[in-house]
């Protein structure tokens, strides 16, 4: 596939966002593509908003995705999905967990899921909300929610035009908890 793909990976510090982004980057490298994965480290990893910019393909130079130029967003928390929506192209694809984690500030009320979904959909984007964290628990470990979302995003977005299933699986294999992660990936990306 020629061209490039800009992917925003977002969520709350501690959810496995960096691992998800790295899996994408490593799979792209296995396929011989260029890749940039700009991570958030330090303070915000303590339960703050975390956003990783992933860019794969041709003519990618700068680590950060300009506002309005992300093709895909994979988001592990619904309020963060809305927070990062300014990065999205109007024809972009969003894959988001329905999970809502209230910010730990006294007196702050989280948004309601239905309001978030409506706000995202009113922007005219293709948005897929799934309860990945719940599905992950059913699979046996809430920590595989990131790979469930990755698998789902692989199925419904252009990621599959850039990254081969083989490289994606090879990259997921490097994660701790290999078997469950592979199971989650094949199940949600429908790779079999």
């Amino acid at each position: 596939m020629r061209g490039s793909l800009n992917i925003i990976v977002g969520g709350v510090g501690g959810q496995g966002i960096l691992s998800l982004a790295r899996v994408l980057g490593e799979a792209a490298v296995l396929d011989g593509l260029e890749a940039l994965v700009a991570e958030t480290h330090g303070l915000s990893q303590r339960g703050g908003s975390v956003i990783v910019h992933v860019r794969i393909g041709e003519n990618i130079e700068a680590p950060l995705i300009p506002m309005g130029e992300a093709d895909i967003m994979i988001s592990m928390e619904a309020m963060e999905t809305l927070r990062n929506i300014g990065y999205m192209r109007r024809k972009g694809v969003i894959v988001s967990d329905t999970l809502i984690i209230p910010p730990s500030i006294p007196g702050v009320k989280p948004l309601k899921l239905e309001d978030i979904v409506e706000a995202v959909k009113s922007a005219g984007l293709e948005a897929h909300f799934l309860s990945a964290s719940e599905e992950a628990k059913k699979l046996g470990d809430s920590r595989v929610a990131n790979i469930i979302l990755l698998g789902y995003a692989y199925r419904v977005s252009h990621i599959k035009d850039f990254i081969s299933p083989r490289s994606l699986m090879k990259s997921v294999e490097t994660l701790p908890g290999r078997d469950l992660n592979l199971k989650a990936l094949t199940l949600y990306a429908t790779l079999d």
């Binding site: 703050g48 506002m67 809305l82 910010p103």
Partner: peptide, 14 residues
């Protein structure tokens, strides 16, 4: 950039 009608509350690190 898309400007959604509602804004989520801030989420500073804790």
């Amino acid at each position: 950039p898309i400007n959604p009608p509602i804004t989520p509350p801030p989420r500073p690190p804790v």
